[in-house]
């Protein structure tokens, strides 16, 4: 079971959270101008990375707020969690290597 740091409540066990899939997928600003292909990309296509992922979590059995996390999908190690609205943080090589370990 994962130990997840909610930015608002602190570290809690995974059963308190709901995963919300890949983060930073922005709804098209002008929906009417989108092609079917662009809609498919937005709705269904995913990076599904083997390595660092930016993903959403919701502290469903806690403060119930959404937040984002950076995690390495090869090890399930979290690099950090951060508040909604913040851009995806840049991570240095040493931290990346630690997460992959």
């Amino acid at each position: 079971m994962l130990l997840i740091r909610c930015p608002y409540c602190g570290e809690r066990s995974e059963i308190e959270f709901a995963n919300g899939g890949e983060a930073h997928i922005a709804r098209p600003a002008d929906p009417m101008s989108q092609t079917d292909e662009e809609w498919a990309q937005y709705l269904y296509m995913r990076d599904n990375p083997k390595g660092l992922i930016a993903e959403r979590w919701r502290h469903a059995h806690g403060c119930n707020r959404f937040f984002n996390a950076l995690r390495d999908t090869r090890t399930d190690r979290f690099v950090m969690t951060y508040e909604m609205g913040r851009p995806r943080p840049e991570i240095d090589a040493a931290t990346l290597a630690e997460a992959a370990r």
């Binding site: 079971m1 995974e14 059963i15 995963n19 599904n48 990375p49 992922i53």
Partner: peptide
């Protein structure tokens, strides 16, 4: 398990 992972393991719950 609900999240993306390539670890071939999951939570005990």
């Amino acid at each position: 398990d609900s999240y993306v992972s390539y670890t071939q393991r999951g939570g005990l719950h």
